[in-house]
Structure formats: structure tokens, C-alpha cells
């Protein structure tokens, strides 16, 4: 499966369909993560490395903690919303759809990762965690003698 799209107008549509097909996949199912746990994760592969992408709109960088041990990754934090921060007292609420609270989620990856080289970036409400596969876990090419 490659994400090289010929037609840029179709690119998003095809991407959405690919993601939809995988929503039934059981790749992380064996881990301690339950269904419906926040934040929702999308897992991608790029070369040997695994990239976990998650949507955390409204969560500040400082409010997220990421820990790695062995093949397990933990993402925890707090999301705050609401007029308490942005507006003075006495504002009335017309509509409230956004939710706030704590989240704590651990995922176990089916590959070994190099904990020293994990890199995370958070921009525009998207948290991306780059997990390089451990050197000793990479498949080795066997030359045929």
C-alpha cells in the first residue's frame, strides 16, 4: 500500500478510504489499550520506523507527558476547555460540545523500539511520535551464497 497519489484532488478521498478500511484492523489489539480510549491513535509505518499520530486539539504541549519503556509507550495528559480560561466570569454557555478531562493511555507495539531516539512533536493540535525501530530488531537481509 503506497500513499503516492496521482491526482491531488483524489488524494484525500483515497486516504480516507484507506484509513476506513484499517479501522477494523487488530494491529494494536493485544496491547493494554482499550477501545475508545483517548486520545485516538493512528499508527503509520515509514521505512523501518513507526509513527503514532493523534489528535489532541486544545491540549498544551506542557500538559502532555510521553513515557517509553521497552515496547510500551504511555501518553498521558490533561485537556482543558471552557469559558473559565478564555472569558471572564458571568459568561453564558450556548453550546458545549468539547470535552475536557484527564487521559492516560498505554500502547504496546509489536516491534522493539529504540527508546533513546523517540521524537515527539506537537503542532496545531496534532501530536506525532516518531518511534525508530531498534537496530537489533530490524530484519536482516540474508545474502544467498
Amino acid at each position: 500500500m503506497s500513499l503516492l497519489f496521482a491526482d491531488p484532488f483524489d488524494a484525500l478521498f483515497q486516504f480516507q478510504q484507506t484509513l476506513d478500511q484499517l479501522r477494523a484492523s487488530r494491529w494494536l489489539e493485544a496491547g493494554p489499550s482499550g477501545g475508545g480510549a483517548y486520545p485516538p491513535l493512528n499508527v503509520f509505518r515509514k521505512g523501518h520506523d513507526v509513527i503514532i499520530v493523534t489528535e489532541v486539539p486544545g491540549v498544551r504541549k506542557a500538559d502532555i507527558s510521553i513515557e517509553a519503556k521497552g515496547d510500551t509507550l504511555r501518553i498521558a495528559g490533561t485537556k482543558t476547555t471552557g469559558p473559565e480560561e478564555a472569558a471572564p466570569q458571568g459568561s453564558s454557555i450556548h453550546r458545549r460540545e468539547r470535552r475536557s478531562g484527564h487521559f492516560d493511555r498505554a500502547v504496546t507495539l509489536p516491534i522493539e523500539i529504540d527508546a533513546e531516539k523517540i521524537r515527539a512533536e506537537c503542532r496545531d493540535g496534532i501530536l506525532a511520535i516518531h518511534l525508530p525501530r531498534a537496530e537489533h530488531d530490524k530484519p536482516r537481509a540474508i545474502p544467498i551464497a
Binding site: L12, Q16, T18, R23, F44, K46, E55
Partner: peptide, 15 residues
């Protein structure tokens, strides 16, 4: 997302 192959997804993306 170029060059990234999805393995597992829990949410979809869109405008």
C-alpha cells in the same frame, strides 16, 4: 502523510 503507510487507525482525517 506522504510516504507513510497506515498500519492501524482509530480516527479518520478530513477537512
Amino acid at each position: 502523510y506522504d510516504g507513510m503507510e497506515p498500519l492501524y487507525t482509530e480516527y479518520n482525517v478530513g477537512h
